[in-house]
Amino acid sequence: MTTEESSKTWVRANDLTREYRVQTDGLSTGRFGLGLFRREMRTVTAIDNISFSIDRGEAVGLVGLNGAGKSTLLKLITGVLVPTSGEVAVGGLNPSQNRSQVVSDIGVVFGHRSQLWWDAPLVDSMNVLKLIYSVDEDEYRQRLEQLSEILELGELIRRAPRQLSLGQRVRGEIMASLLHSPKLLILDEPTVGLDIIAKARIRNLIRTLVEEEDVTVILASHEVTDIERVCDRTILIDHGQILYDGTIEQLIATAGVERSLVLDVASEAGGTEGDVSVEQVTVPLTGEDAASRLIEAASAGTVSDARVTGGDLEVILARVFDRAEE
């Protein structure tokens, strides 16, 4: 990695592969119960020779079906797992060899697993995390106040997580992951189970972190709107391989889906005054003459409503993964 690259690139994976050894014989005890003592194993490739890089201050969405390899990839980036082959670097360092140093700059939110003490006030969990990450006392107080304000937690930090709603608890989790001002924030399903207001709040916060604090974000989510609203770039992963790496716009374009604008155009029917008919006009949004077609359609009468069709990201993603299965 060159000096120029290292200042810009924050996460880099080269020919990264991770295999697991898993038991194949399930619950069978085998002949004469010998299965209790002998296990048949096979190798499963969770991450299969992938390469990518993520720049500092970039928000990248990681999308894949269940079992695609997302969690393994996140564990390789955080140093929880060691690659079978290839390499991964975070801030120029190998995470499994420099675990302490690398994770000091990483904040992690596991949507399904809490890092808070269930029965102790939120602020007590923060006090322990302050010691774990060796955050200076003054900096800690300032950060706690700032995060309480941004996350609208206020007096809630005096309550135990078991007394909080799911949305409040997730905000507490995010506060815990940001307390040490990480350069890389990894979020695994952060909005799972939240209501629409809580989801929007979390998405806005992540965007603010990217734009104002230059935090690099890796967001793994099945919630397509999270990816659309938060991420600059999306990596689609399937069977441990990268299916697509680029922007959402490019993905829509390459998926061959035509987006159209449907206009409800109201005009006087048969030239009779007061007799209004509404016609639905569909204008394809692709092609060089899209603008002129749009103007022409809109000039035919009064536009009472307009909506975009055909660009539903969820449908596009399903189509991409379906194609990959074929």
Binding site: T78, G79, V80, V103, V108, F110, R113
Partner: peptide, 12 residues
Amino acid sequence: EGWVDRYLVRPR
């Protein structure tokens, strides 16, 4: 319960 993953992402 997956606590080890959480320990491993902390610098201790």
